[in-house]
Simulated scan of single mutants.
Amino acid sequence: MSRELVLIGVGAGDPDWLTLAAVDAIRRVDVLFVVVKEAEYDDLVEARRELIARHRDTPLRTVSLQDPKRPWRTTPDYPAAVRRWRAQRRDAWGAALAAELGEGETGGFLVWGDPSLYESTLAIIEEVISHSQTDIELDVIPGVSSVLALAARHHIPLNRQGHAVQIMPARLLADGMPDGVVDAVVMLDGKQAFASIDPEGIDIYWGAYLGSPDEILISGPLAEVRDEVLRVRNEAIERKGWMFDTYLLRRVDPGRSAD
């Protein structure tokens, strides 16, 4: 008998955003692998426990995986730091799967948002499986990403007719909105890149803690609301100790495709 591993997308924050497929997967896993980050947040730990308690009638064995530190926040060689970090994850997770996932068992990872969008779990698990000495079948359950949650909460379509949407990490905003891009969803913005670009002709739709009781939404012309976003964001970090936010930058005139 082979072993099975399922990556379960659990959505961006609202426990009601779980799909029926995600609920079924939570109920059938034999062992849950929990990645404990270097500064795990009590809110997220509690949210994970709530999901399990809400959808399991039987006890669930859990295995904690201590996440390696993320050195690229200070390193001058970002790509090399990311490669080392991913290799450390691959080796640790591979060892845990070999030791804890028995023949005929199903293991699971709960993945915030969607496993396929700016989430390294899927790519690392694929490396783990390719290096494994045993057969492991992989299943991926999609989840409601923060991108879709952001559009829904602001009551806007993600795309506009005849135009594409670019989803990008904030570091690609260093020189402003990329040429040819009229709608950009920005993720992983730890340095508030939106505040340093030319705001002329750009609206922002910003959201933090989407789907949670602490959800915050701000929208409007970037030049008018960016200071408010910065203030509210900093106040929220002071209050909670952490921040998950996503935003859409939208050119008011789609015909203007270059800065």
Results as ranks from 00 to 15, higher is better:
residue 167 I to A: 05
residue 246 T to S: 07
residue 128 V to C: 09
residue 6 V to E: 00
residue 251 R to Q: 13
residue 168 M to I: 11
residue 182 V to N: 06
residue 53 A to M: 13
residue 49 R to A: 11
residue 176 G to F: 03
residue 207 G to R: 05
residue 49 R to H: 09
residue 119 E to L: 03
residue 242 W to V: 05
residue 42 D to Y: 11
residue 165 V to W: 04
residue 72 W to V: 04
residue 173 L to W: 05
residue 35 V to T: 15
residue 29 V to R: 01
residue 100 E to T: 01
residue 201 G to C: 08
residue 59 P to S: 11
residue 238 E to G: 10
residue 144 V to A: 06
residue 124 I to S: 04
residue 6 V to K: 05
residue 18 L to S: 02
residue 181 V to N: 07
residue 232 V to T: 09
residue 155 H to P: 03
residue 152 A to T: 09
residue 47 A to R: 02
residue 67 D to C: 15
residue 225 V to G: 07
residue 164 A to L: 13
residue 218 I to P: 01
residue 77 D to T: 05
residue 163 H to F: 12
residue 207 G to Y: 01
residue 63 V to M: 04
residue 184 A to W: 02
residue 136 I to L: 07
residue 158 L to G: 05
residue 199 P to F: 09
residue 138 L to I: 10
residue 230 L to I: 15
residue 206 W to F: 15
residue 52 I to S: 01
residue 113 G to E: 01
residue 88 Q to I: 00
residue 113 G to S: 11
residue 144 V to C: 11
residue 220 G to C: 11
residue 208 A to V: 11
residue 20 L to T: 15
residue 103 E to M: 11
residue 165 V to Q: 04
residue 99 A to R: 12
residue 86 R to D: 03
residue 259 D to M: 02
residue 109 F to A: 01
residue 49 R to N: 02
residue 57 D to M: 08
residue 89 R to T: 08
residue 16 D to P: 13
residue 162 G to M: 09
residue 31 V to C: 03
residue 171 R to P: 00
residue 194 F to T: 06
residue 31 V to E: 02
residue 251 R to P: 08
residue 257 S to N: 11
residue 22 A to T: 06
residue 72 W to Y: 15
residue 151 A to L: 06
residue 149 A to Y: 05
residue 134 T to V: 13
residue 134 T to R: 14
residue 23 V to R: 05
residue 242 W to T: 03
residue 54 R to L: 14
residue 3 R to N: 10
residue 19 T to E: 00
residue 179 D to Y: 00
residue 224 E to W: 00
residue 69 K to Y: 06
residue 157 P to L: 01
residue 169 P to K: 07
residue 104 G to F: 13
residue 157 P to I: 03
residue 6 V to G: 03
residue 69 K to T: 10
residue 237 I to H: 12
residue 216 I to M: 14
residue 144 V to N: 02
residue 188 L to M: 13
residue 35 V to P: 04
residue 114 D to T: 08
residue 233 R to V: 05
residue 204 I to G: 01
residue 208 A to C: 12
residue 81 A to K: 02
residue 18 L to D: 03
residue 115 P to A: 04
residue 2 S to R: 13
residue 222 L to I: 03
residue 200 E to V: 10
residue 165 V to G: 06
residue 128 V to N: 10
residue 6 V to Y: 10
residue 152 A to W: 04
residue 5 L to M: 12
residue 78 Y to H: 13
residue 109 F to G: 00
residue 153 R to D: 01
residue 128 V to Y: 04
residue 172 L to P: 02
residue 133 Q to I: 02
residue 109 F to D: 03
residue 138 L to K: 04
residue 120 S to T: 13
residue 150 L to H: 07
residue 126 E to T: 11
residue 183 D to Q: 14
residue 219 S to Q: 14
residue 127 E to G: 12
residue 177 M to I: 14
residue 71 P to L: 01
residue 8 I to R: 02
residue 151 A to Q: 02
residue 131 H to K: 13
residue 43 D to Q: 15
residue 20 L to K: 15
residue 97 L to N: 04
residue 136 I to P: 11
residue 252 V to S: 08
residue 121 T to G: 04
residue 22 A to V: 05
residue 61 R to E: 11
residue 142 P to C: 14
residue 79 P to K: 09
residue 167 I to T: 07
residue 121 T to I: 10
residue 231 R to Q: 15
residue 216 I to N: 06
residue 8 I to D: 01
residue 172 L to Q: 09
residue 151 A to D: 01
residue 50 E to K: 09
residue 84 R to I: 08
residue 252 V to C: 14
